[in-house]
C-alpha cells in the first residue's frame, strides 16, 4: 500500500514533538529554586526564671547567694561572680563548675549589654547543671 506525500508529512509531524527546550527551562527553574531557597535554621530554647528587683526591697541575700552580674566595662561585656572577673564564657564556665548547683544561679543583666552575652551566661549555667537559673534585669 502506498501513502500519499501529505499523509507521510502528517505522520512525521506527529512524531517530532521535541521536549528538550521545556526540559531545559524546567531544569533552570529547578536550579534557581534550589539555589535561592533558604530553609529555616533549627532553633532551640533557653527557659530562665524571671525576677525583677523592685527598688531596694529585695536584697541580694533574699534572692540567692550565687550571682553573675553582666555589665559593660570599657565597652566590653564582663561577667562578674563575687571577686571573679570573667571576660569570656570559657572562664565563666570554669568558675561556675566550682560552685554548688543546688541553690541555683541569678544572672543580673545590665542594660546595653549585647543579648548574646546574656544568653551565653544562661547557657553556660545550664551546661554546668544549674537547675534553676533566674534572669534579673538591672537598670
Amino acid at each position: 500500500m502506498r501513502f500519499s506525500s501529505s499523509q507521510k508529512k502528517h505522520k512525521l509531524n506527529r512524531a517530532a514533538v521535541n521536549l528538550s527546550s521545556m526540559i531545559d527551562v524546567t531544569f533552570l527553574l529547578l536550579v534557581y529554586f534550589i539555589v535561592t531557597t533558604v530553609l529555616p535554621t533549627p532553633e532551640d530554647l533557653l527557659t530562665p526564671a524571671l525576677k525583677v528587683e523592685e527598688g531596694t526591697s529585695i536584697s541580694i541575700d533574699d534572692l540567692d547567694p550565687q550571682i553573675i552580674e553582666i555589665r559593660l566595662q570599657d565597652g566590653l561585656p564582663l561577667y562578674v561572680i563575687g571577686s571573679h572577673l570573667c571576660p569570656d564564657r570559657e572562664s565563666l564556665a570554669v568558675v561556675l563548675l566550682s560552685l554548688p548547683t543546688e541553690p541555683g544561679l541569678i544572672v543580673r543583666v545590665n542594660n546595653e549589654v549585647p543579648v548574646a552575652f546574656a544568653v551565653a551566661a544562661i547557657q553556660v549555667a545550664r551546661d554546668a547543671n544549674f537547675e534553676k537559673v533566674t534572669y534579673v534585669p538591672v537598670n
Partner: peptide, 17 residues
C-alpha cells in the same frame, strides 16, 4: 537578635514579670 542591646529585653522581662 544577638547584637541587640539588653535594654529592650530587660524592659520586656519587667513587663512579663
Amino acid at each position: 537578635d544577638q547584637d541587640a542591646s539588653t535594654t529592650t529585653l530587660n524592659e520586656i522581662f519587667r513587663l512579663l514579670n
